[in-house]
Structure formats: C-alpha cells, structure tokens
Design a protein around this nucleic acid. Sequence first.
DNA 1: AGCAGCAGTGCAATCGGTTGCAAGAAATTG
DNA 2: CAATTTCTTGCAACCGATTGCACTGCTGCT
Lengths: 335, 335
Amino acid sequence: MATIKDVAKLAKVSPSTASRAMHDNPAISEKTKARVRKAMQTLHYAPDFNAQSLANKRSNAIGVILPVDHHEIFTNPFFLKVLRGISEACYHAQAMVNLATGSSQAELLHSIDIMVTQGMIRRFIVLYSEQNDPILLKLRQLDAQYVMIGKPYQLVNETPYVDNDNILAGSDAAQFLVNHGHKNICFVYNDLKKMVQNDRMLGYQRVMMENGLLINSFELPAQEYPGGRQLVIQYLTQHPEITAFETVDDMLGLRIQQVLRSAKMVTDRQVSIIGFNNSVYSEAAHPALTSVEVFPRRLGNEAAKIAVSLQMSENLSTKLIVPHQIIERHSVATV
Amino acid sequence: MATIKDVAKLAKVSPSTASRAMHDNPAISEKTKARVRKAMQTLHYAPDFNAQSLANKRSNAIGVILPVDHHEIFTNPFFLKVLRGISEACYHAQAMVNLATGSSQAELLHSIDIMVTQGMIRRFIVLYSEQNDPILLKLRQLDAQYVMIGKPYQLVNETPYVDNDNILAGSDAAQFLVNHGHKNICFVYNDLKKMVQNDRMLGYQRVMMENGLLINSFELPAQEYPGGRQLVIQYLTQHPEITAFETVDDMLGLRIQQVLRSAKMVTDRQVSIIGFNNSVYSEAAHPALTSVEVFPRRLGNEAAKIAVSLQMSENLSTKLIVPHQIIERHSVATV
DNA sequence: AGCAGCAGTGCAATCGGTTGCAAGAAATTG
DNA sequence: CAATTTCTTGCAACCGATTGCACTGCTGCT
C-alpha cells in the first residue's frame, strides 16, 4: 500500500502539502494539487483510516444503533432493509459502518461508550425512536452526533431525523378504504405510546371525520399474548358492521385474517384489510395484504447521507420525510 | 481520556513497559505488572483502537459480510439474528463489528477491499455459503482470514466454519413425521444446489430408506414465480397418498398450507407439515408450523468467537456444529 | 575480583497521517 | 529598486499506541 509519503515524493512535494492538496486546502495552488492528484492516481493511493482517525481524533465510521433486543426486532425485516440503505450510502461516502447492539440496555450503553471513547466514532444513526431513551442521553453526554430514523420525542428541532409522514400515511390508507366503499372501518393498533402508531391513527381519524364516519379502534396485543385470538373473535362478533380494518402493521392484519378464516362463526363474512410496512407478512398472507410501503431502505439511505455529512460542530438539523406508497394486493374488496 | 503515557507516569514506568505489562509480556516482572494494572484501574484507562490498529497494522474490528442483495435476504430474519449473536460475542471480546453489504457483487468486493486495505480489518465472518464465491477468493487474495456460517464448498478442511448438522436435522424432521405415523412423506425444496437444502434432503432420504418408505420430493420455486400455486395444486391432486410434507424452509410450508386452505378440491384433506428455521413464517401460519429451530443467534455467536480468536498466522481451522431442535406447534398431526 | 549471563526496563523509531508556524518566493507598492 | 504584502510550501511536532535493541544491575561462576 502506498502511503502519503510515497505520493508526496512522486509529486515532489512534502507530505504536508500532499495532505493539504488531498483535502482541497485553499492554501495549495491548483498546479500543485494537480500534481498530487496525478501521483495519487498512479500509485492507487488510499488513506489509512486508522492513521486518519488517530490524527483527527475522529473516526470515519458511522455507528448504527439497533434497539435493545426484543422479539420484534429479530423478526422484523425492516431493520435489515434499513441497514442496506445505510450501507449503500456509506459505501459511496467512503465511510465504514459499525454496528452496535446489546441484549440489555446496559450492554448497549457500554458498547456505545466504547465506540466513542476507544473507537473515536462521532456520528451515529439510531434506528428507532423511543420516549426518554437513555441511549440518546448517553450520546449527547459523549458529545457524539446522531441522526434518527423515526421522529424524535425530545429535542425535535435540534435532532436531525428521517421519517415517513405517518399521519399522511394513516389517512391515505383510510382514504383508500373509503374509496373502496367502506364506511365502517376499524383501526387496529398495538401500542399507542409509539408515535408511529399514534400518528397513523391520527391520520385515520382525520379521514373518518372528514367523511362523517364513525371512529372504531381496537388494541390487539403482541403476539405472545395468548388471549389475542379470543379478543379478535369477540370484537368481530360485537361489531358485525365493520367491513374493513386498517392495521398498524401487516402482522396484525395477518392475525385478523387467520381468525376470520378459522373461526366458524364469522366464516362467511367478507372483511377487507390494509396493513403497513409491506413486509413478509403481507406476501405470506392469503389473500396477500394490500399494504403501505414505507421504503425502509430509503430511510436508511437518507439517514446515512445526513450522518456522513455531519460536521464537527454542526447544529442545523436536517429533517427529511420519505414518501410512502400503497401497494395494492388482494385484501381490499370494493363494497 | 487517559493515554498509555498517563498510566506509565502514574506507575512510574515508561510507556513501553506499560504497553508490555498490558499485554502480559513475560519480560515484565509481576511486581511491575501489578503497578501498571493498578494505574490502569485508577485512570480508567482504555486503549485507543485507532492507535492500536495503526501500530499493529491490524484492526480489532471484525468484518461481517452479508450476501449480495436479493429478495430473500431482506425478508429473512435469520441474518438479523446472526448479527445479534456476532455482536454479542464481539462485545465481550472488545471487538468492533463492521458491516459489509453491497447491492452488487462488484460493490461488495470493493467494500471488502477498502475494509482490508484502508481499515486494516483482517478477520471476517461470511454469513452464507455459496459455490465458487468470488468474495472468498478476494478475501484470500487480500490475505484476510474468515470464518463462515454454513459449510464451505471449497477448502472445507482449511476453512473455519460453524454450521448445523443439516443432514441430521433433515432426518430428525423426517423421523418426527414417521413417529407420528406418517408413511407417505414428501420433501419440498427450492434449490438443491444449495448445500443446506441438499443435506436436509439427504437426511430425509436416509430416514425414509431406513423405514422402508418411498421417497417423494417436490420443487417449489421461489415466491416470485407466478405458477407456484398451480404447481402445488397439481402435485397434491396427483399424489393423494401424501399425508405429510417436510419443507426445507417454513416459508414453503406456509405456502402449501395456504393452497390447502383455499383450493376447494383438497379442502378436507388433512396434511401435516414440518418446516425449518422456526422463523416468523411458522408463527404466522395457521395452524402454527412445527419447525426445526437452527439457533441462528448461536451460530453467529460461535462464529464471532472463532473470528476474534484467529491469530495472525493461524491455520488450524475450527469447525463447530451447533445443535438444532424441533419446536412443536400444531401443524403435525398423528395419523 | 572479574566476567558471563540474564532479568527487567527504557530509549527512540515507527505506524500513516494532520496542522501550527515559519520561511522562501513571487507579486505589489511607493 | 527596496520594502511590504501575499502566496506557497516545508519543517517539525503530534495523535496513541508497539517493539527492536541497548543498557543497567544483579547473580553466580571460576
């Protein structure tokens, strides 16, 4: 591997000049820069990241923080897609991607500490958004910068983030059902404390109100909760008027679908479903779920682009909204 | 942050002695080592990874190579679980985790090149196994070490890897069905060129032969292939004797299940299914699929442990087989 | 006593970059 | 033409570690 000294020698300048030329320092004349660039070319020069990080006291790597272990994460392809987007952007920006996960919060906090203090990583992407997240606090304490995927709960104005417009997505989905003639639509969620879910529900509510329709909602607890099935059956029998569900995630849609198919009492009832995230679940379902694609890869990509461009003392925060799109399959019928 | 010089000063030794003491160099007396250790403690010393990497010409990071983009990867939670396992082991070994992905092979190759030449990363974990993989060739050319997840196709003896015993898993699954009284069992696969699938089928065949039963197999192409559904229907009608399927992945089991439920002609036929990987699909299915858990997290964890322990010129390769386990749900009935 | 041998430690160079400061060269000014 | 300013560039220190080699004392031997 050629070093900067080799380049300097070939270009007949000192290493310092070479270094400055490479960083397009205005103190260096265009002529010299050209010579240095040529030398770099012929030697296939590429800087040593570790040496750079050492000298700069700042790594070129981007830290990626996954949420603390949880059944959902493992099964949710969302994160993998986001990772791909991040990886792609970092590739183009010549940045390395450094992963941080932990089975407990303490472990994750420690990981991050190490990345910052020992690895000199200064820019992070946080793949989730949670209320009062100690991880974010830690990052701030360590004086590291971060961009979030999902809208932050705190310091909204100071935090760069990329997200979907979940309110709009929620209303688009509802409007889609309304356009198909549905009037009694139920919104199904998991945990309204999560902003994504809450926002989607707000969007749903807006459309219902605009159309003079009644708001119905139903909380379907996480899969592990055993009584879930029974709850669905109960809800369906108590609300015979409902013809469509808007579920905050495809998974919930799939579960409703399964209940419908197996519970004899409601077997001949035709119910439409629209889900979110366009995940494996929507394709696995039968009929395949119509779903709102949120483009996780794009989310990751944009987040990474912002992260790599973060300067040392940047404090204008970028906010970026990536669009969503309804993917029509076969789970929504016209009434 | 305290540096090694601070530690040295406090312990009243030179930085070189401090460094040697930290690495448990036999040239340093026990007394001195103790002094250095105490100094490290009181100063909360932690080495600067970049400085170390620079001096050692070798990063403490482990590179993790995901397969080139492909629909499967995005939807397959397997990889995320493996990543968690890797991350965990690396955390305990004080190693960083560096991700490499690419949307094309060229991009991935280039990524790896950068990681090795510019990042000084010398140890990798390859999360998949493919025939004639140029990535592996590249790694060898760059003189990097790697451990694979999945059995390698080439250089089997020289390559450290961790894998399940897929032949055994294949026969355990078959035996499970046989034990439940099934005699006409069909093995469903996707692509026999993949060793995982081939091995599982071998295991299946062995059990069938041992029990004097007929071997049946059926290739169900990838989800995107439109005619798949029709193929299943056709197979089912042509083989009315089949009472159970062993599918090389849960996904395939789910698809068969769906066909069974929707195709009127076979509607009252009772068919048992056992799948592999214990993925989201098995829980999403109804009835939930009995499936063979392969412990992806453990696979990742062990692979990482091997990777971090790889020495510079190591050439004894470790092979590690992680066990599997049948997770009983409701998709296998006794006949 | 003299000297070899060895254990224990420090000096100084090195890894591959970056950057403050000074100095030389060129251009401008009176 | 000398003096001053403005560009360019190089010197040398530094980032935080590692390591070959030399040096100091001490032990033990003859």
